[in-house]
């Protein structure tokens, strides 16, 4: 049986992933900001086949509450197989350029908070000597682009942090997976014009569950983003700084 903790559980990708685990009969512990949404979600997941669902509220920017949030989840699940960290926002890049406060606050939500949560989850998983820590980073973290480099910088921090943690925890049988979705059609990206590169949250969720099953390290979702980002990473800086991306 799967015992799964999901942070940022009300995000579209997290919800789609939770549904896939529910269909497998998992026990799920959901963490997000709004209690009412979590309650609705828990009800839905039970009907979809979850063995049981509980939830706790947390504002990820309230770092002092992180330890307690995990402690509650752990004591309810007893042993944990999967921790998925999926919270996030999509900052308004131009607002981040105008306001340093805004930039730092968005960096905290998408980067600092994630690092804090990963650190606490890692301690617990290390003690168990078992489990998977999957964190949703982004293709945006592979190279800073003018259109969203604040978001990209936060995600780069997460990817780099996860890389080091993966090395450290491999020794004790704990897997750390960096998930790098490309464009996903979610409420977070509602105002974008959607083209052929856009994926549905459920397609990303399927990739996440498969990556966890196979104990992968870094995955791009959908897979073709690994090729796109390979190219983007290798564009020489003198050219890169002249193009619009």
């Amino acid at each position: 049986m799967h015992r799964v903790i999901i942070i940022g559980a009300t995000s579209a990708i997290a919800e789609a992933t939770a549904r896939r685990y529910a269909a497998r009969g998992a026990r799920l512990y959901l963490i997000a900001r709004r209690a009412q949404r979590l309650e609705d979600l828990a009800q839905d997941l039970k009907i979809r086949g979850a063995a049981d669902v509980a939830f706790g509220t947390l504002d990820v920017n309230h770092h002092a509450a992180h330890v307690d949030a995990f402690a509650k989840a752990w004591s309810w699940l007893e042993k944990v197989d999967v921790v998925l960290i999926a919270h996030g926002t999509l900052p308004d890049q131009s607002e981040c350029e105008r306001s340093a406060d805004h930039a730092v606050s968005e960096f905290n939500t998408n980067g600092t908070a994630t690092i804090s949560l990963m650190t606490i989850a890692a301690t617990e998983l290390e003690a168990q000597r078992h489990g998977v820590l999957a964190v949703i980073s982004s293709v945006a973290g592979d190279r800073g682009r003018q259109s969203n480099y604040l978001y990209g910088a936060a995600k780069a921090a997460v990817s780099t942090f996860a890389s080091g943690m993966r090395q450290r925890l491999a020794k004790v049988g704990v897997t750390v997976i960096t998930i790098k979705p490309g464009f996903v059609d979610t409420p977070m990206t509602q105002h974008f014009q959607k083209g052929a590169l856009w994926a549905k949250p459920d397609a990303i969720a399927r990739g996440i569950v498969r990556a966890v099953d196979r104990r992968r390290s870094v995955i791009y979702l959908p897979w073709f983003w690994s090729i796109i980002m390979l190219i983007i990473r290798h564009i020489p800086e003198p050219i890169f700084k002249r193009i619009k991306l």
């Binding site: 579209a12 009907i47 409420p187």
Partner: peptide, 9 residues
């Protein structure tokens, strides 16, 4: 389409 939760069965 994204308002697609079960409430009670």
């Amino acid at each position: 389409r994204n308002m697609d939760r079960y409430i009670r069965f």
